[in-house]
Amino acid sequence: MLLAIPKSEYKERQQKFCEILTDKKCDGAVIFSVTDIFYLTGFHFHPTERPIGMFIDPELKFHLFLPALEHEHAEEYGIVDQVHSYPEYPGIRHPMEYMKELLIQFGFENKTVGYDSLGYGSPMGYRGQSIDQLISVKEFVSLKWVIEEMRYIKSANEIELIKESCRWGNLAHRLLQKYTKAGLSEIEITSKASMEATMAMIETLGAEYKPHGKTAYAIFRGQIGPESAFPHAVTQNLVLKKGDTLVTGAAADVYGYGSELERTMFVEEVSKEQEKYFQYMHEAQDVALAAIKPGVLYSSVEEAVQKYFKETGITELTSHHTGHNIGLLGHEAPFFDLGDDNEIKPGMVVTVEPGIYVRGIGGFRHSDTVLVTNDGIEMLTYYPRDIKSLIC
């Protein structure tokens, strides 16, 4: 299979984006989102204190703006009309001054300009002017959610990359369960399983494989024993004990596309109490899966799950929504939330993960990656879901 998005698909995405700009009466646009730049150009980068952006000029040509140290990288991988760089090191002139010159040069002044953010943002100490302080325009038009909404429905190529992610997540999880034993530490188990799965992955897929993210991994992320009752626990390198409830996660990124496989497992044995809550969780996931159909609203899936929780009297044991879209990011909109009235459509890829959390006993959550089809759903993750198969 092709382990990348072909150039032709990037060109199609760019054309669609330009049509949206025209519909919104924008003469051009400035984009700073890492994910959205990758989606439109194939250029994947790590945001630091050095600003990187993309702009589409009034001639609808695509440009990348970045530090000199990224110039050759962008020319090699970026599917754009032109790459511009600034001499970030050494130098005392602020990078946004160079962007200002380019925006003026390519005719942005006194035009209607779309934007996802008015300025570059980074948690790594960046400070700089926003574009509305750099140039004078007729009007700024927010495009904040436009490219994310373009990503809602996955292409055939994207779906194949997600399926490949699922395959290697499945192997990583299989190895995680194999190596899970009482007396071993969390990091010892997860490191061994993740490395073995990654080696098999790179040997099988060969030189064409590019993760653009994480390679194959399987983790507990701290959800071990009573700590598993915290939905977003963090790794503490706990030593596993007989009878522990475990909540796992496994996946692999393939050309930036990921998946989500999570399971509730038990170390050597399971008590009646653990089994009771496991069955509640299992049934809640079944309810959610049955509710996902093209043409219905995301909120209706959450409503069905909330109805089940209320009928079984366990609403107080729940902490989060039923799931979300997934693709280039681990969490993407829309979400299975009561307030999300987006329509479910064929080609969307979602996670389904209603959870139950019982203090002192543990957390109970499966997560599966699911493709919405014309007449229902296709399960892309396929690890066993029954309790008998999940006792280590």
Rank of each mutant, 00 (worst) to 15 (best):
S300R: 11
E302L: 05
E303A: 09
E303Q: 13
A304F: 04
A304R: 08
A304G: 11
V305H: 01
Q306C: 12
Q306P: 04
K307A: 09
K307P: 04
Y308L: 05
F309R: 13
E311H: 06
T312Q: 15
G313V: 01
I314W: 05
T315Y: 05
T315N: 07
T315C: 05
T315L: 13
L317H: 14
L317R: 13
T318G: 06
T318I: 02
S319V: 10
H320M: 10
H321A: 10
G323F: 08
G323V: 12
H324K: 04
N325L: 08
I326M: 04
G327R: 02
L328Y: 02
G330P: 08
G330N: 12
G330W: 09
H331S: 11
A333V: 02
A333I: 05
P334F: 03
F335N: 07
F335Y: 09
F336P: 00
F336T: 00
L338C: 04
L338A: 08
G339M: 09
D341Q: 13
I344E: 07
K345A: 15
P346M: 04
G347D: 07
V350F: 08
V350P: 02
V350Q: 04
V350S: 04
V350G: 05
V352G: 04
P354Y: 04
P354H: 03
G355F: 00
G355M: 00
I356C: 01
I356H: 00
Y357K: 10
Y357A: 09
I361V: 14
G362I: 00
R365I: 03
H366W: 03
H366E: 05
H366V: 02
H366M: 11
